[in-house]
Design a protein around this nucleic acid. Structure first.
Lengths: 149, 149
DNA sequence: GTGTTATAGTTACATATGAAACCATTTGCA
DNA sequence: TGCAAATGGTTTCATATGTAACTATAACAC
C-alpha cells in the first residue's frame, strides 16, 4: 500500500503510456503464440519467422530474409544455422555469386510450416475476436499509418 | 528476386500478421525513446520503467514494482541493484517485515526523472501525431479491450 | 589486369535475459 | 511453541542478443 505522490514532478503514468502498452500487448501476444510451438517443435520466434518468409518466397538469400523479417543479419545467420542443422531449410549457393546463399524449406520444413501456420493464425483470430468488426478495421488502418515510422 | 510460391501450403503473410506487426511497431517506438536517454543517462528501458513507477508510487517494495511494470522479479532486482548503485534510488527495509525493501527515488533520481519524462512524452506525441483524433480515440479503445489478454 | 571499395555471411565478445536454485524471514497451524 | 509452507529478494547458470571485427567474394575505377 503506498500513496500516489509528488504530482509536482509530473510522473509518467505507465499504464496510459502508448509505448509501454504496445510493449506489453506485443509481448503477451507473441508469447502466447510461441508457447504453442516453442517446445513442441524446438523452434524460436526468429526461426519461425524465417521459415514463414521462406514459405512465401522460395530461394531468398539470407540478406533478403533479413529484410523481409525486419531482423538483423546476425540473427538471421544464427536462425539459419539451426534450421539447416535441424534439416528444415536447405541452403545452396547462388550460381553467379558465391557469396549469396539460396534458401528454401526442405520437405521437413514444409511439414513443420504446415502445422505451425494454422496454429499461429488461430491465435491471431483469438486475439482479434476480442474486437468487433469496426474495431478490427480501425486497428488495421491505424497500424498501416504507424507502420512506416 | 524470387517468385511467390506454393499457394497450396497457405503460407503466413508476415506483413499482415497482427502479432508480427505489433512486435515491429512496439520495438520501433520503444527503441526511438530509449535512444533518447539510453546513452545520455546510462539507463536501460527496464531501469527507466522502475524509476517511472517509483516516481508515482513512493515506498513500493520490489515485488510491487514488478507488478506495476509487468516485469519479472529478477529483472526488477537487477535494475534496482544498478539504480541503487548509481544513487538514483534509495532502498530501505520495511519496518514490520525485514524481507521487504522500501524503495524511493533519491534527489538525483528525481532529477533524472524530471529530464527523461518530458522526452518520453514528447516521443509519444510524435507517434500519435501520425493519427488524427478519431484514430487516436479508437486506438485507446482497442488497447483497452485487448489489454486484459 | 590490379588495387580499392562494397557486399554476403559468420564469428567473437560483451551484455541481457529467464528459469531455477537459493537464503532469509514470515506466516499458518498443529 | 515449533515446524512446514509461503514470500521477498538475490544469485547462478544457461541461452539470447547486438555490435564490431573478420573472411570470402564481387563490383568498380583506372
Amino acid at each position: 500500500m503506498s500513496a500516489e505522490s509528488k504530482p509536482d514532478h509530473a510522473p509518467l503514468e505507465l499504464e496510459r503510456f502508448l509505448p509501454y502498452r504496445l510493449s506489453i500487448l506485443s509481448n503477451t501476444v507473441s508469447q502466447a503464440i510461441a508457447d504453442d510451438y516453442q517446445q513442441r517443435y524446438d523452434l524460436t520466434v526468429t526461426e519461425w519467422r524465417v521459415m514463414a518468409v521462406l514459405a512465401r518466397f522460395d530461394g531468398l538469400s539470407a540478406r533478403e530474409v533479413a529484410e523481409r523479417t525486419a531482423m538483423d543479419k546476425v540473427a538471421v545467420s544464427r536462425a539459419l544455422a539451426r534450421l539447416v542443422e535441424a534439416g528444415r531449410v536447405h541452403r545452396g549457393t547462388h550460381d553467379g555469386d558465391k557469396r549469396r546463399s539460396v534458401l528454401s524449406l526442405s520437405e521437413n520444413g514444409w511439414q513443420v510450416h504446415d502445422e505451425v501456420a494454422p496454429m499461429a493464425r488461430a491465435r491471431e483470430r483469438e486475439v482479434l475476436a476480442k474486437l468487433d468488426d469496426e474495431e478490427q478495421a480501425w486497428l488495421t488502418r491505424i497500424l498501416d499509418k504507424l507502420q512506416p515510422l
